[in-house]
């Protein structure tokens, strides 16, 4: 089976610092990592390969330094990586990003399943996976939480929706975006790390793939970010700081009064 995992390199945002003056992110010293939700897609591909054999190709679009993310994916168990990097790709929104990734996947060709993360933790749109499938005109499912069966022609998977789990049978080739529930991603092995260090990662530019230059980068993107600001989330609330047992007791009494005021008890 030929499995494809498009990934994204993102800033490690769990401890992100914002510049209070400009409202922009402080980028210096922020580590670049594989989008944490992509790890589940990589793991899903590795498990499928372990069962049926084949090859896993990971690809990313980004600056030359994004090759680090591809090497991390290879250290986990992907076979090879492709970096899509060129100034003409820069500034792409999800429409243009999914176009370029789809064109690269078309060039790889002859694939069975494409696994994507549910969304990236920086842009947080979840639009690129469905976008790639739409460009490739293949069926896709979002929020896939389990893989039940894989046959020659079809796969049966679970899809986590608001009211429960749809069990769906989908024709291959197809694309999935997967959620955390699907698996527990493995850590890179020593052997994997060695392979990742030594492997050559080709860089593809617009010349390598059959793309319409009109659809690339910022110019090819229908959407434009026109302003960045700092969100305001603050309320003026009552705050109690009880210390003694009596104060603790009183604060609980006040909390119950608060519940009564809301008419919930």
């Amino acid at each position: 089976m030929k499995l494809i995992v498009p990934i994204k390199q993102v800033p490690e945002t769990s401890n992100v610092k914002m510049d209070p003056e400009t409202g922009t992110m402080v980028r210096s010293g922020v580590e670049q990592i594989i989008n944490p939700l992509d790890l589940y897609a990589i793991e899903a591909a590795i498990r499928l390969k372990e069962k049926f054999g084949g090859e896993i190709i990971t690809l990313t679009m980004g600056p030359p330094s994004a090759d680090k993310a591809l090497r991390e994916a290879i250290a986990m168990g992907c076979d090879r990586g492709i970096l899509l990097s060129h100034k003409d790709f820069a500034g792409a929104d999800t429409w243009s990003t999914s176009y370029v990734l789809a064109k690269a996947i078309e060039k790889i060709g002859d694939y069975d399943v494409i696994f994507c993360g549910e969304r990236a933790t920086d842009g947080d749109t979840g639009q690129v996976g469905p976008g790639i499938a739409s460009w490739l005109k293949i069926p896709f499912l979002t929020y896939v939480s389990g893989i039940d069966q894989t046959n020659q022609e079809t796969m049966t998977v679970e899809r986590n929706v608001e009211a429960g789990y749809q069990i769906l049978k989908i024709q291959k080739p197809c694309l999935f975006t997967v959620v955390k529930e699907i698996n527990f991603p493995r850590l890179p092995t020593l052997k994997g790390k060695k392979k990742a260090r030594d492997i050559e990662i080709p860089t593809w530019t617009p010349q390598n793939i059959d793309v319409d230059p009109e659809n690339l980068g910022l110019n090819g993107s229908p959407t434009r970010v026109v302003k960045i600001s700092k969100p305001k989330v603050s309320r003026e609330g009552e705050k109690l700081m009880p210390e003694s047992d009596q104060e603790i007791e009183d604060s609980v009494g006040k909390l119950i009064e608060y519940f009564e005021k809301l008419e919930i008890i």
Partner: peptide
Amino acid sequence: RPAIGGNILATIKTPNH
């Protein structure tokens, strides 16, 4: 919309499409 883990608010337009 919020982005980067809710750290920023981005204002976005679709001028020509």
